[in-house]
């Protein structure tokens, strides 16, 4: 229900009236510091980092550490995503340093540079589902299996995984950020090789290399493929879809409500479910595909 108005009453409102109501609802959920995301980002990094000495000192068996490493690498992206949208603190805010700190540090397990992720993600928002300009467009696939096949093939040495990101950075005049990517790749490779040549190749493979690949697939599935599928609409209310994941909201990383994020990127992830349910009827009237969340489809 939106502001106590019934669906029938909402349908009588004009476009500008609906717009005002939608913005009023969104405003309630913005301008909050997501302390949970801050703790998540820094805590998750601490857990991942602690796995290394725990395993190398034989305090924690690698068989136990591996699933924890997969989980922590998979969980490393979203806090940085909050920072990419300056949700923790905008420019000029006294806590801006914290926003940037979380942005940079939380994605270390994912071995990706914050500035590259931010610049390319802004391009994704600006050109969602545009085959030429959306850096994430290549993730689109007709179904789950096609996504998996596509995801594995695209990251092969001859695949196009990073080309779209590089092209996007060049296009927006931030080609210099490719140096960040180069530095991160170098450190990632250097750590793996140094570990391998000092007798810890299995530990390096199971704490970083394999978790990174598993997490990359998982993150691409829930953050890129699922909420944008089938990826054919480019207008404001058609870029994303609502869906009800069998994995639940936590395991689907809150992406069931990704519509809200694309409409109002400054709403923290933890508030998107409440915002979605409050503006659900408006979104449906606006032409959003809210999937199984539509009243008639359950």
């Amino acid at each position: 229900m939106s502001e106590a108005l019934s669906r029938t009453e909402l349908e009588t409102l004009s476009g500008p009236e609906l717009d005002a109501l939608e913005r009023k609802i969104a405003g309630k959920y913005m301008h909050r510091i997501p302390w949970g995301a801050v703790a998540w980002g820094l805590g998750n990094l601490t857990v991942w980092l602690s796995l290394w000495p725990l395993v190398l000192l034989e305090i924690l068996p690698i068989a136990w550490a591996f699933p924890i490493a997969v989980l922590t690498v998979a969980l490393s992206y979203l806090p940085s995503h909050e920072a990419q949208h300056s949700i923790i603190a905008r420019e000029g805010h006294p806590l801006r340093w914290l926003n940037e700190l979380v942005g940079h540090l939380s994605v270390i397990p994912f071995a990706q540079p914050y500035r590259v992720l931010k610049a390319t993600h802004m391009e994704h928002h600006a050109h969602t589902n545009n085959p030429e300009l959306d850096p994430d467009y290549a993730v689109h696939a007709k179904d789950n299996w096609d996504f998996l096949k596509n995801s594995i093939l695209r990251r092969q040495p001859g695949g196009a995984a990073q080309q779209a990101y590089g092209a996007a950075l060049e296009r927006v005049g931030k080609g210099n950020l490719l140096l960040d990517a180069l530095a991160y790749n170098f450190v990632f490779l250097a750590v793996l090789c140094a570990m391998a040549w000092t007798g810890h190749a299995i530990e390096a493979a199971l704490l970083w290399w394999l978790p990174k690949h598993i997490a990359q697939t998982y993150i691409q599935y829930y953050l890129s493929w699922a909420p944008h599928h089938p990826g054919i609409r480019q207008e404001r209310y058609g870029q994303t879809r609502g869906f009800m994941s069998k994995a639940g909201n936590l395991l689907s990383m809150g992406m069931q409500y990704h519509i809200v994020h694309h409409l109002y990127p400054r709403i923290p992830l933890s508030s998107t479910p409440a915002a979605f349910h409050e503006m659900k009827d408006i979104l449906e009237i606006r032409g959003c595909d809210i999937g199984q969340w539509a009243d008639g489809s359950r």
């Binding site: 040495p157 490779l189 793996l192 090789c193 391998a196 190749a201 299995i202 390096a204 493979a205």
Partner: peptide
């Protein structure tokens, strides 16, 4: 030089080589 550094050959030799060696010993 950069392309060579990040090439599959270097990865195979410098990381997968010792990894396979450890797996041979483990097995």
């Amino acid at each position: 030089a950069i392309k060579f550094l990040f090439s599959p050959f270097i990865f195979g030799l410098a990381f997968m080589g010792p990894l396979i060696a450890e797996l041979i010993v483990l097995a």
